[in-house]
Computed example of a mutant assay.
Amino acid sequence: MGQPVTLAVTPPAHVRIDHYSAVHVAAAAARALGAQCGLPGAMPDQAAVLASELASNIDKHAKDGALYIQPLPLSGGVEILAADRGPGMPELERCLADGYTTVGTLGAGLGAVRRIATCFSIRTQVGAGTYASARLVRPEQADAARQSAALLCLPADLEEHCGDAGAVVDTGCIRTAAVIDGLGHGSEAAEAAQSALRSFRTAAAHPLPDVLNAMHRALRHTRGAAVGLLRLEGAQARYCGIGNVRAVALSHEGVHHRLTGQPGVVGWRMPTPKTHSIALPAGATALLHSDGIDARWTQDPSLFVLRLPPELLTASVMHHHRNARDDAAVLAVRPHQRHL
């Protein structure tokens, strides 16, 4: 059996960087999460440094930026995602060097992030913006920090609970992913999503229609959910979904597939599930998202966006295409490899 991995049960801290005081808010959120996740010793303080430096970089150099601070999708650590709308960094490698600054500060920011983080990725484009991911885990979990899967879920504005959820299960070289959208908002939607998630963890190794049928039974006494399932094995993927959870396959050349689920509600009125097989080009990323993301983002994505790794792709899609009045989830995966 594969090992089920929950990707973000609790919503991340979403910190808009619109004033320098937000830097302190981000640092405090990262420190608290590090302690909550059981990071030992000084590691919660290291998480705070990562958040502080990424937030400071946005405050000093960018516009319309935010940090998303959450439990690391694939282990017991912390992930800090940063996104902004520009102006980007024309000399990224110089910006990553200790001592480099354009505003008269010490200039240790991004260099310190690269040193402290277990895994650090960053991409930038002049005029388009910058995306960064800093993952911090115990030393013995370093491989988990490099896994090629990522998820970001946010509740609708003014909501405490998120009705969207996601998970990934690896069984040998087969990777199965799910995005679940509990109907409506609030605690009842979150309850439906978590019931579906528990069922998925138990049944994930079975054929995809059987997984949906198991989730359907589990949700009979909830308000129900839309569910999208995606199974990756080598250069092939299979999609099975009910409701408005969309699947997209991306490569460096463009968008290759756009799929949405069959009409219905898991837990209430569900048709016989059907599975669609799609070919994945070399290096492709498969992505699932709920209807809290504007589906028009796939119409003409830039080459810069198409080439983002999963963790930065989720940040980009969420930051630019989220409907703030609805819960939203974005999950991006590449085929599972035993050694990443």
Rank of each mutant, 00 (worst) to 15 (best):
residue 14 H to L: 07
residue 257 H to V: 15
residue 108 A to G: 09
residue 152 L to S: 10
residue 9 V to C: 05
residue 262 Q to N: 07
residue 332 A to I: 03
residue 208 L to W: 01
residue 35 A to H: 12
residue 66 A to C: 06
residue 128 A to N: 06
residue 83 A to T: 11
residue 115 R to M: 05
residue 23 V to W: 03
residue 226 A to D: 13
residue 262 Q to I: 03
residue 192 A to H: 11
residue 78 V to S: 02
residue 200 F to G: 03
residue 199 S to A: 15
residue 207 P to V: 05
residue 40 P to L: 12
residue 208 L to A: 06
residue 331 L to N: 10
residue 260 T to E: 13
residue 329 A to W: 02
residue 246 R to E: 06
residue 183 L to E: 03
residue 197 L to I: 08
residue 234 G to M: 07
residue 165 A to I: 07
residue 117 A to Q: 01
residue 304 F to D: 15
residue 228 G to C: 08
residue 292 G to L: 08
residue 204 A to C: 02
residue 158 L to S: 14
residue 231 R to W: 00
residue 308 L to H: 08
residue 61 H to G: 06
residue 44 P to Y: 06
residue 193 A to N: 09
residue 51 A to M: 01
residue 251 S to V: 11
residue 47 A to Q: 05
residue 190 A to R: 15
residue 151 L to H: 08
residue 37 C to P: 05
residue 39 L to Y: 05
residue 186 G to S: 06
residue 270 M to K: 08
residue 256 H to E: 10
residue 330 V to C: 09
residue 334 R to K: 13
residue 197 L to N: 04
residue 73 P to Q: 11
residue 196 A to C: 13
residue 52 S to V: 00
residue 93 E to R: 14
residue 299 Q to A: 10
residue 331 L to P: 04
residue 322 R to F: 10
residue 61 H to C: 00
residue 220 R to C: 13
residue 241 G to A: 15
